[in-house]
Every structure is written in structure tokens, then in C-alpha cells.
């Protein structure tokens, strides 16, 4: 069991992530979009979406630092363990609260605004269950272990996560970890696996290149193709 969860699942999730991204890039660029619902409703979204995104991006950065930056590195930067944990506890919790408020508002909006709800696919619903599960369990795990400096995942979960890169996962490290953290980690891996198959794929196209390109883009017509094209997805004839 332990080998399955902490030795195999991470690789399966990662493989699904990469395979999904490649598949999407190769065969479904047309489906790669945020599917923004702002044209239906923007008042709530104007609050909920920035709150959620700024929150989750901070949380994401926190996870990367927490899991993949070893204690020794932060210590050599002169950050004591105590300061690090205070920062992680308060910063992380603040971002977490923002994220939770954001996602709750997003889901409320999705459910109650009827055009938005009608535009919600089964895929979106599944995505929201897993995403909400990961976020909420993460928050619960964090808040359930606040005594002292909080649970020190930097001695168990983080080394395990780093050991994944060596292809020799140290699964034994995860065995003593509190159950809440274990469940959070499993849902998190499920989420990673799901990303390319849901609308979450939009996070991989964050348009940073916009900062560097000239404003007006010129492109040549495809010289090999003139006149009518075969129908593309979204451009088929309607029959209704």
C-alpha cells in the first residue's frame, strides 16, 4: 500500500500530466482555453476569480518552496527554522483563506447563476470536487497541527518529494505522516493527474511571453492553402 501510494502514484500522476499535456498540445489545441464565463456574469467573478487565483498561485509557490527547497538551503540564506515556519503558517494560512473564500464564491456563482450553471460540464464538476477537496483538506491538515511551529513537513514529506527525482522514492518517510496530510497528498496527486484533462490546463499557458513581444503581430497567410478549408471543430454546420 505504502509503495503504491508513495512509490507508484506520484509517477503515475506525473506521467498522466505529461501525456495529457502532449496529447492536448498535439490534438486539442482548440479545446485549450479558460472557457471564461465572464460574459455571463462579471460582478461576482470580479471578486472571486482574482481572490482565488492570487491565493492559489501563492499556495502553489509555497508548495514548491516547501517541498523542493531543502532546509539546509533556507538555513544557509539565514532564515531560521522558526521564522520559516511562522511565515509558512501565517502566509500560507492567509493565502489559503483567500483561496478558499475565492473558490467558495466561484462555486456559489457557478451553481446559482443559471447561464453559468448551464455552461458547466461534468468535467468541470469533477474538477471542482477534486480541487475543492485538495484545498480544503490542505487547510484542515494545516490548521489541525498548529501547536508550536506547526507540523514539520520539511523532515518527512519534503525529503520524500525530493527523493522522487532520484527515482528511488523513500516511501518509509511518509509512513509516520499524519493521516490528514496523507489524504491531502493523495488528492493533490489526483489533481495533478487531472489538470491536462480539464479546464485547469489553462494554467500551463500563462501568457508571460506577452511581456516581451511587439504589440502588433504579423503573420503570413499559409501559402499552401487557398479558399475553403475543411470544417474545424467549433465551425461545423449547425443542424438545429
Amino acid at each position: 500500500m505504502s509503495t503504491l501510494l508513495w512509490g507508484a502514484l506520484p509517477y503515475i500522476a506525473f506521467a498522466l500530466l505529461v501525456a495529457g499535456l502532449v496529447w492536448r498540445h498535439r490534438y486539442d489545441k482548440f479545446g485549450w482555453t479558460t472557457r471564461s464565463s465572464q460574459v455571463y456574469e462579471s460582478r461576482l467573478l470580479n471578486i472571486a476569480s482574482p481572490a482565488f487565483h492570487y491565493g492559489i498561485l501563492f499556495v502553489l509557490a509555497g508548495h514548491l518552496v516547501g517541498l523542493f527547497v531543502p532546509e539546509s538551503w533556507t538555513r544557509s540564506l539565514g532564515v531560521s527554522e522558526h521564522t520559516y515556519h511562522l511565515f509558512s503558517l501565517y502566509g500560507g494560512t492567509a493565502a489559503g483563506v483567500l483561496t478558499v473564500l475565492g473558490i467558495v464564491l466561484l462555486i456559489y456563482r457557478r451553481r446559482t447563476n443559471s447561464p453559468v450553471f448551464r455552461a458547466t460540464t461534468v468535467n468541470d464538476k469533477l474538477m471542482y470536487v477534486v480541487l475543492l477537496g485538495a484545498i480544503v483538506l490542505g487547510m484542515i491538515a494545516k490548521l489541525a497541527h498548529t501547536s508550536g511551529d506547526g507540523y514539520n513537513y520539511r523532515e518527512t514529506i519534503a525529503p520524500w518529494a525530493r527523493s522522487l527525482f532520484t527515482l528511488r522514492p523513500r516511501t518509509e518517510l511518509m509512513e509516520g505522516v499524519p493521516v490528514l496530510y496523507q489524504v491531502h497528498a493523495v488528492i493533490g496527486m489526483a489533481l495533478i493527474a487531472l489538470v491536462p484533462y480539464t479546464r485547469l490546463v489553462h494554467m500551463f499557458s500563462a501568457p508571460v511571453q506577452y511581456l516581451f513581444r511587439p504589440y502588433v503581430v504579423y503573420r503570413s497567410r499559409d501559402p499552401r492553402q487557398l479558399g475553403p478549408r475543411p470544417p474545424r471543430r467549433g465551425w461545423e454546420r449547425t443542424d438545429a
Partner: peptide
């Protein structure tokens, strides 16, 4: 075109 963050919009050079 200038507003598109992805660079998906473009002006065709020919026409």
C-alpha cells in the same frame, strides 16, 4: 491584436 496576451491574433502581411 496588441491586447491579446497569447499572441493568437494577427494581421496578415499579404492583405
Amino acid at each position: 491584436v496588441a491586447s491579446c496576451p497569447s499572441g493568437a491574433m494577427y494581421k496578415r502581411t499579404e492583405d
